[in-house]
């Protein structure tokens, strides 16, 4: 199984400097959290998805579709129950509460999707090098990229261990909540043991390849801000400015919700 989310494609987005992509990511977060109105939220989501399509990186969303749908449904449902508004819709649910729920769900989904597109189009090493160029110490930048790598690696080990335990008759999908948690013990212990073991070898291998041996370091990846990056940065900055102006002018909010 593939321990990385990165999709090796040759697109306009892939060729952007990682620093530009980090700015894009932050920009997407700001846009997502700026507007509560689901209509505006949908526009932001559509823009993010269009960008993902441009990067030919939407296939990775399939990996997390279950989580995305689950989070969206649960968020919407919870706010329907806990928020209240003015216009009754059905039972005890008001229109404003529903819209608010959808708005929050869109925010969360958009941030996750934007993050996924970022990881699908940016190499781990590019993230490290980009962070270093932004003034972050190398060791810290390396730790960030290692953590990003660890998540899918643990998931892969977990899948193997799950197969091994299911072969022994473990049925994970039966019983109540407590029962289900208890049933995961046979998965967790081997996952911990294997992860600790391979992390140990990993750090030995790092030392053996001279990690941190010399105070300075060179980089194989050559990062360069091109005109392409400049254009993208300007466009995104303008977009943000317009969005901020709209928001402060009173658009994109949601009236009549009380939490």
């Amino acid at each position: 199984m593939d321990p990385f989310l990165y999709l090796d494609r040759d697109t306009f987005v892939h060729r952007l400097d990682p620093r530009t992509k980090m700015f894009l990511l932050v920009g997407a977060f700001v846009l997502a959290f700026l507007f509560l109105n689901p209509l505006y939220g949908l526009v932001v989501l559509a823009a993010v998805l269009a960008f993902g399509a441009l990067a030919r990186s939407l296939s990775n969303l399939g990996r997390i579709r279950f989580i995305l749908v689950a989070i969206a449904l649960v968020t919407t449902a919870l706010w329907c129950i806990f928020a209240s508004g003015e216009t009754p819709l059905f039972l005890f649910v008001e229109l404003e509460a529903l819209l608010y729920g959808i708005g929050v769900a869109l925010r969360i989904s958009t941030t996750i999707i934007a993050g996924m597109i970022f990881l699908s189009t940016t190499r781990n090493e590019e993230i490290t090098t980009g962070l270093v160029k932004l003034g972050i110490p190398y060791r810290f930048a390396f730790a960030v990229s290692t953590a990003l790598r660890l998540v899918p690696a643990v998931a892969t080990t977990g899948a193997t261990i799950g197969q091994a335990q299911r072969s022994r008759g473990l049925d994970l999908d039966e019983g109540g909540v407590l029962e289900r948690v208890r049933k995961r013990v046979p998965l967790l212990i081997p996952v911990f043991v294997s992860t600790i073991r391979s992390t140990n070898i990993f750090s030995m291998a790092l030392e053996s390849k001279g990690f941190g041996a010399s105070p300075t370091r060179s980089y194989f990846l050559h990062l360069e801000m091109t005109r392409r990056d400049a254009i993208v940065l300007v466009v995104v900055a303008l977009l943000l400015a317009v969005a901020l102006y709209l928001r402060f002018a009173g658009y994109g909010g949601l009236e009549g919700v009380t939490r």
Partner: peptide
Amino acid sequence: FQDFEAQLFSTNVALEVAFGPENFSVER
């Protein structure tokens, strides 16, 4: 090391090989 899976961590072959020289500040 014996466990080769655990010592490979880069996203492509060239970067994997370059990691060592990078640490020693070898020029590009």
